[in-house]
């Protein structure tokens, strides 16, 4: 049901620019106002959220047990430096591997029941599907985003040409088919199928899990539709996009509706981003179990929000509370303390 709601919602989203531009000709709103607003919302609220996360207290290190920590005898028990780092550089390596290679997903296991002669047995096995398709999806997305720079920069930087060349190296059709276009859809469809097919995952999947998947899928499909089927005037689109980044917004004539649909969906994605689970993009850098070395055993970590409490000796204590103690009949080391300070 959750999946269905999300799908229907994305369909409705597609209809908005279809009629907004196709019938009502609100090109300026869909081509200029909305994308600029979306970038603004994306930027401001992402930063707000990151700062809010940054302000939460980090009282101590959270050692995760993914590997042997630095032990008293590193010869006997070899430290697993990348899974249980003890200093900054090792932590940076763990983070780079996490961000670039998704090692946490790599550790994904699947649990299953096996019937044996002696009854059912629980079995755990390594399951790399999620990891593999997640990599496929994320890297395709990255390449696609970088390729889009051709519409926002003039002259076009060399790495964009390089990406475009490698991405289209199969030289299938004209305009050439980009591998990333195919792979992102494959990746997304797997991530979607995983949620739908696995009863356990389906049970915990919410609208907020399906909606981003369908939304990104719709962005990808509208882009593919535009490039390979509808065929839009790329030069006019570059005039529009360059107008946005040079702050001389302008709507050239002759741009197909499919472009506005694509841009509208991207704008929705940008606006939805800071409020959604997609914030794992900046969030992964702030994972407390990943980004801190496990050095609790040789560094004293002071709770950062502790009040500044000065040590108080018994003599000073007796001075403060002497009169009250004397009144209660408690013994005093120094009988002078029995008198209140004014009297003394």
């Amino acid at each position: 049901m959750n999946a269905l709601y999300s799908l229907v919602f994305v369909f409705i989203l597609v209809l908005i620019p279809l009629f907004g531009v196709g019938a009502a000709h609100l090109n300026t709103i869909f081509g200029i106002c909305l994308p600029m607003t979306a970038i603004g919302i994306f930027l401001v609220f992402s930063v707000v959220k990151i700062v809010r996360w940054g302000r939460s207290p980090v009282p101590f290190r959270i050692p995760t047990t993914a590997g042997q920590q630095l032990s008293y005898d590193p010869e006997l028990f070899k430290q697993n430096k990348w899974d249980n780092p003890s200093n900054g550089i090792q932590t940076v390596i763990r983070m780079v591997l996490e961000v670039c290679a998704f090692r946490t997903l790599f550790r994904n296991t699947s649990t299953s029941l096996h019937e044996t002669k002696n009854g059912p047995v629980v079995a755990f096995s390594s399951s790399k599907w999620l990891w593999g398709f997640a990599l496929l999806f994320h890297y395709s997305f990255l390449i696609i985003v970088l390729r889009h720079l051709r519409l926002f920069l003039e002259p076009i930087p060399f790495f964009v040409h390089g990406l475009e060349f490698i991405d289209g190296i199969l030289q299938i059709g004209a305009p050439v088919m980009y591998m990333s276009d195919v792979l992102i859809v494959v990746g997304l469809l797997f991530l979607l199928a995983r949620r739908l097919a696995d009863a356990k995952v389906r049970y915990i999947s919410l609208v907020t899990d399906y909606f981003p998947l369908f939304l990104i899928l719709s962005v990808a499909l509208s882009g593919i539709w535009m490039r390979y089927y509808a065929k839009v005037d790329v030069m006019a689109i570059k005039e529009l996009t360059m107008g946005l980044v040079t702050m001389h917004p302008h709507i050239p004539a002759g741009i197909d509706v499919s472009f506005y649909i694509h841009v509208f969906l991207v704008s929705i994605l940008l606006m939805y981003f800071p409020f959604s689970k997609l914030m794992h993009m900046p969030g992964v850098f702030m994972s407390p179990t990943r980004n801190m070395p496990n050095d609790n055993r040789f560094h004293h970590h002071e709770n950062p929000w502790n009040p500044d409490i000065k040590p108080l000796s018994y003599e000073a204590y007796e001075k403060d509370f002497g009169p009250a103690m004397a009144e209660a009949g408690l013994p005093l080391d120094n009988p002078d303390n029995a008198k209140a300070p004014e009297e003394a």
């Binding site: 720079l149 570059k238 005039e239 360059m242 107008g243 040079t246 702050m247």
Partner: peptide, 14 residues
């Protein structure tokens, strides 16, 4: 914001 920064003061024509 880099695309905005690189394009400061530029204008684009087909």
């Amino acid at each position: 914001l880099s695309p905005f920064v690189f394009n400061v003061g530029k204008a684009y024509k087909q």
